[in-house]
Amino acid sequence: MKAAVLKSFGTPLVIENAPEPVLGTGEVIVDVAPDIALQGLTAAGAGGMLLQKHFRHGSFAERMRVPTENVKRLGAITSEEAAQWCALGTLLVPYGGLLAANLQAGETVLVSGATGNFGSAAVSVALAMGAACVVTPGRNETILADLVRRFGSRVKPVKLTSNEDDDREAMKRAAPGPIDCVFDIMPPSVSPTVVRAAVMTVRAYGRVVLMGGVGMAGGAGLELPYPWIMRNCITIHGVWMYPPDAASRLIALVRSGLLRLDDYKTTAFDLDHINEAVAHAAANGGPFKLTVIRP
């Protein structure tokens, strides 16, 4: 079969013939459609490394081997729809966080990092799950305006100023009532004061979900006042990715019409143009944009 192979870091991918994957116990062979994958990025502990070694080849090929429990049925889709279904790879990340937050219909959510790729996905997922209002702080006014254009008056944008106290009060004022849940997915480059300003908008007995990267690239970590957490009975939940049943549940949200994939603009490349696809993805990142490979 044809596959794109990385021979060494810093070099272009090479298209070559590779052996067909061999079916093992508890595994399936799938024909690869458009691709978004975390495979090969992280492995926590010795067990994770064993899995990475066994399932070491990703989906830049015509077929790949995956564990049976990781395969979920999409149902019938057309070739034209296939590229947009790749958005599940992005949407599943914030969906996992909002499930952990036990988001309920009618609640108010604040998405810290709303103008980023995963943050914008969190806005769409929260609304699909029934959030009455999503507060969207950020510095990029163009993206903030685009979120309002896409999703309407349930989105409440807030332009950040870098003053922690002022920003916190502005976020509170933007919400029509108490903020029930704060979802943070800020990148490592962001100052922890920006994250703290958002986190501390949550109401008493509220929930905070941390899925971002503050402190992961060095520098100061997130500091929150112990008395504020304790006296307000704040629940803080760190979340890595999503539970096993999240994919099936998110597919159901799409099938119901509550979560729309047509917000995503997709650009597809065939496998022979894999390096052009990589260059395109690097130059065209951002909210609601997908670069996909169609072998």
Rank of each mutant, 00 (worst) to 15 (best):
E69W: 12
D184S: 15
T78D: 04
D166S: 08
A197W: 08
F269A: 04
L258W: 12
I251G: 09
R203G: 05
I234T: 01
A175H: 04
R173G: 09
A3Y: 11
L271A: 09
N163M: 13
W85Q: 04
F55H: 13
V278M: 08
D31V: 10
Q39F: 10
S248R: 06
T266C: 15
V66S: 09
T201V: 01
L259F: 05
A87G: 14
P34F: 07
L127H: 01
L38E: 11
V202C: 06
A128H: 01
V292G: 05
V254T: 05
V254L: 03
G58C: 07
R203F: 01
L6C: 09
A43D: 15
R203L: 02
I179A: 01
M171W: 02
W228Q: 12
T291L: 09
L74N: 14
T115G: 06
N232I: 03
G97I: 01
P137E: 03
T11G: 14
M230N: 05
H280Q: 12
G219R: 05
T291E: 05
G48P: 05
K172V: 06
S59R: 10
G58L: 04
S162H: 15
A4W: 00
K156V: 01
E81G: 02
V93M: 13
A61F: 05
S256E: 14
P34W: 03
P12L: 00
G26F: 06
S162F: 03
M230G: 08
A283F: 14
E169A: 03
Y205L: 07
H57Y: 14
G48I: 02
G257P: 12
A283I: 07
M230I: 05
V123F: 11
D167V: 08
A175L: 09
C86V: 02
W240V: 12
R139A: 03
K72P: 03
G152K: 07
T42M: 13
Q104G: 02
S8R: 09
T108P: 10
N232F: 00
A46G: 11
L88K: 11
F9R: 14
F118K: 07
L110A: 01
R203A: 10
Q104E: 15
P244W: 07
A204N: 10
I251W: 03
